[in-house]
């Protein structure tokens, strides 16, 4: 479903991604772990072209998407994204946040978009918060609306960029539950996270990144319980205590 081939990215002199390759099969959840500054967020942003890779290819469902002939807007409809700081549109209520993509990207009529948006809010357990503005929602609720906003466009895959890192501890569970349900329903997902419990239980594959390269990749058991590389061992040892 998603293939990343030898992707490089420079920000000025900073070589953030140094030839990253990965593969996510349809319906799989790939969890990306690694220390901060290792290029995980940049990698996610390359996949939906929020960041244009300098070298290498991004292939989604058989289409090479980092091609000048392909509109980035089209790619971003195929691949949803959920941000660390939610990034809900602050001037729109929960329902409108979910509707705007349906109206402006999918060109649905108002009634259809509203019906669809309410359905998506219900899926994340927030049907009763449709009229609330982001400032009136808890972090966990905001992140669930953000997930609904991404899902509403019926993407082929969803990228999660540390979706629980900005949350108070009491709200982490509700977001992870929504994500777990999504994975069980067969959504293709790439998740950057520090939630090792989630990674262990939900991920089909785990990928450890450091300094812009993929250090190690495998099943959760392989990476967490029997890491082969020294850097992986050190990192896993630190976060699993």
């Amino acid at each position: 479903m998603i293939t990343v081939q030898n992707v490089h990215k420079w920000f000025g002199d900073l070589h953030v991604l140094k030839g990253v390759s990965l593969q996510v099969n349809k319906g799989d959840a790939l969890v990306v772990i690694g220390p901060s500054g290792s290029g995980k967020s940049t990698l996610l942003r390359c996949i939906n072209l929020l960041v244009q890779p300098d070298e290498g290819d991004i292939i989604i469902d058989g289409v090479k998407v980092n091609d000048p002939r392909i509109r980035p807007e089209w790619v971003r409809q195929q691949v949803g994204m959920v941000f660390q700081s939610f990034n809900l549109f602050t001037h729109l209520n929960a329902l409108e946040n979910v509707m705007i993509g349906l109206r402006k990207v999918k060109r649905m009529d108002r009634a259809g978009a509203e019906r669809m948006a309410r359905f998506e809010l219900e899926r994340v357990g927030l049907a009763d918060k449709a009229d609330a503005y982001p400032a009136q929602l808890s972090g966990g609720q905001q992140q669930r609306v953000a997930i609904a906003r991404a899902l509403a466009l019926n993407p082929k895959a969803v990228l999660f960029d540390e979706p629980t890192s900005a949350l108070d501890p009491e709200f982490i569970r509700e977001v992870l539950d929504v994500m777990t349900k999504l994975a069980e329903e067969g959504m293709t997902m790439v998740v950057v996270t520090h939630e090792m419990g989630f990674a262990h239980n939900v991920a089909d594959r785990v990928l450890f990144m450091a300094d812009g390269v993929v250090v190690e990749e495998g099943t959760p058991d392989e990476v967490f319980d029997r890491p082969q590389k020294e850097r992986t061992q050190a990192f896993v040892g630190k976060i699993l205590g």
Binding site: Q77, G80, F83, N87, I100, V105
Partner: peptide
């Protein structure tokens, strides 16, 4: 981040 969020759902 508001603009990036807009881009992420494919808004022009």
């Amino acid at each position: 981040t508001q603009i990036e969020a807009g881009e992420s759902i494919g808004l022009s």
